[in-house]
Structure formats: C-alpha cells, structure tokens
Design a protein around this nucleic acid. Structure first.
Lengths: 211, 211
DNA sequence: TAGATTGTTAATCGATTAACAATC
DNA sequence: TAGATTGTTAATCGATTAACAATC
C-alpha cells in the first residue's frame, strides 16, 4: 500500500470521519472542525482522531482545527474514493436487488460514495441477459471476462451460504481484490484479498445477549 | 447481566461459534469438536476459543473436546436464543422488505436463529394497515402500544438517515433494548441500549482502501 | 499576547497468544 | 498407560488515552 501497514482498526474509522465531514459540508457552512467535535460526531475520542489522521499527514493547524473541505478531500484520496470504483454484485435475489437499489440511491445522493455498481451476476438463466435496476445481469461464467472488461475490483456476494465460497473463488481468480460478503459463512481467501462481513444475523444474535 | 461484564469482543464471537456448531449438526454426524477445529472454522485461534467459552463454564473434557450438541445448546442459552425473541423492523422500503424476506428464510432454515420478526413499522399511510411478507405494518405512532403488546425488545432500523435518530428515540422510549441500525448515521442512545451498526457502505469504503 | 488545538510521546488499558499442569 | 485436549496463568502484543510542548 502507499503507507506501510497501517492498522485496519485505523482504516475502519476513516469512512466514519468522512461521513461526518460530508454531512457537515452538505448541511452547514462550517469550514473548520476540531478533533474534539469530529470525534464526538463519529463516536471516537479526540486523541484517537488526531492520531488516526496523523498517520497520513499533517492535516490540521494548531489552535485552529481541521478545514472541513480539505480534510474531506484528503480522506477521499486515502480511501481511493477520489476516483469512481466499479463494483459488482453477485446474487440477484431480493436481497441483491434491494442492496443494488440502496447502493444506487447512495451513489446519487452522496458525493463521497464513489463506488459505482456496474454489473450484476447470477446463475439463473431466466435472469441472465436481463437488466435489473438499470444494471445488466451476467452469467457467473462470464466473471473473468467482465471483471477485466469493466475493471471491477470489488464484489458483493449476496448468494445463499452454499454457493458463496465457490462464487468467491471464481471472482478471486478473475482478479478482484475485495469482497463484501452477505452470506452466513466464513470465506476462505488468500491473504491479499480483503473480506468484509455483512451478515446481519450475527449482529442480531449478538444484541440478543444483552436483552 | 447474568455474568458480570464480559467483554463485547467475546460476545461477538459466540454467534460465530454457534453458526459452526449448527452447520456441523445439520451437515455431519460429528459429535465432538476440539477448540482447534472450532477455531479454524470460525476464524479464531484455538486458545481464544477456549478462553471465550471458559467465561461461561466448563463445557469441554480434557483430551476429548466439546460435545457439539451440548455446546450448541449452552451457547443458545447464553445468547438468549433458547427462547423466541420478537423483533420488529422499521422502514418498509425495498431494503426493509428484502431484510424481512431474508430474515424469514433464515428463521425457517436455521434452528438457532430464534429471532422472530413480528411487526413492521412505517410512516406512509399507504403502507400502514397492510400486510407485507405475512407481517402486519403498523404506524410508528403505535410503537409504544405494539412494543408492549408483542413483547418486542429489538428493532431493526431501515429508514433514511434523516429519520433514524427520531425512530430510535421513539422505540427506546417504548422500552426496547437493542437496535440494529442500517441507516448511515451514528445513533445517540443511552448507555443501557445496545446498537449494532449495519451500514454496508462504510464497509465498502473500508475495502476500497485496500484496492 | 492569550487561548485554543494540533501532532506526538509516554502511560495505560485490554485483548490475544503461548505455555503447561491437570485430566480425560 | 500414552496421547490428546482442556482450563488457566503468565507473557506478549496492540490499541486507546492522557499529557504536553509546539504553534497557529
């Protein structure tokens, strides 16, 4: 990476900060923010905010704080969100469709959300070749071709648990770098592939503990 | 709680272990599992598996391992999943509907997923009073009544960001204990309320860093 | 100048891992 | 009995917080 081995705990908070800065620049004309305020809005201590940002540069001014627009821009660059990132989704079921709609809405509304959904994949012949929510549905057998053609480097997997590992393998072989996995299964992937888990059932079960 | 102050990091792994044990008892007739194997399938070190479980009791036998069925049962009890837990969802948009379908499927297929969706809520008069996916849609103004009547103690919030905090407030006042929040906003809640964040856009943005 | 807030170092806190005696 | 694996303690590792000199 461009900065050597910054902890994932740090990276996870950057989108949180970015979200706060986006809100600020849309909803207010506030031009400066302190680490204290930014932390409060993001749910993070102010010292940690400063430490996180300091990994990437000196973005603030002593006695003043951080410039909202500038910091927002820097965070976008760090997260590669200053360019449009093509993303695909596999599994055109009701969850897949809903995620796609939600994604499209987010892409329209939120200027920093530069992840563009460009392709859908499924195995159902009835779905392949159709257009869903304005996005073409391809066969999973076309993965390698389409990943290259459309420059896709991230996929969301929204297929049943049984198929998820196989789908992951196919797309990893096709050359993608990141997976957001909605299936209730622990994917086995090579070290260089990053996986985000988005199985909301796990989270619900965790919350049940505290009832 | 029944065990005093066990770290949330521990609690988060329990549903992971439970998922592995569920698979095992459905797909194989394996009756014993070692902390090593359980850890491998859950993506956790074996020492940590033993330490996590040891917080709640002595569930294993030296030289033998853990009984799959027994441990599964114990984990269910610990997570309160040995009883049906009534859950509601707020926001009957396409995301809400998809989550509901997914939830219902999961509830049918997965014996340990004892979280039952019993009510939907929305503000749209056209939706209120209807039945979606077999579940009645109530007005958010009925929250207090329905939460008591149906014994709801967890809600999933799938409304736009602008409305999420207000919805959270209403349901917290109605007496719920846990929130699974799909809206892209940091909810402010009292200490005793537990919130799970399920904004998949944040996770996608994180993954973008590693491209 | 006086007040505020950064960037950074040192101190603390918590979580994971290693190791091993106990024992099935 | 010999081999395996637990439960648990001690060691390590990493992440967060406190504190403060530098400086806007």
């Amino acid at each position: 990476m461009r900065w050597n081995k910054i902890s994932d705990a740090v990276i996870r908070r950057l989108p949180l900060y970015l979200r706060v800065l986006d809100e600020l620049s849309v909803e207010t004309d506030q031009e400066l923010i302190s680490s204290h305020d930014l932390g409060e809005k993001a749910g993070v201590g102010s010292a940690l905010v400063r430490k996180d940002l300091a990994w990437f540069g000196e973005f603030g001014k002593q006695g003043v704080g951080y410039e909202v627009g500038f910091l927002r821009n820097e965070l976008r660059k760090i997260l590669n969100l200053d360019q449009e990132i093509p993303v695909a989704l596999v599994g055109v079921g009701s969850l897949g469709i809903a995620l796609t709609r939600y994604h499209l809405k987010r892409f329209e509304e939120d200027k920093s959300f530069n992840l563009k959904q460009v392709a859908l994949f499924d195995i159902d012949p009835k779905k392949i070749g159709t257009i869903a929510e304005g996005i073409p549905v391809f066969s999973i057998s076309e993965a390698a071709t389409k990943v290259k053609e459309l420059n896709i480097n991230m996929v969301m997997i929204a297929v049943p648990a049984e198929g998820a590992q196989e789908v992951a393998n196919v797309f990893i072989n096709a050359g993608i770098k990141g997976i957001l996995n909605f299936a209730p299964i622990k994917l086995k992937v090579p070290d260089e592939i990053h996986v985000g888990d988005a199985d909301f059932a796990l989270e619900l079960q965790r919350l049940a503990y505290y009832i």
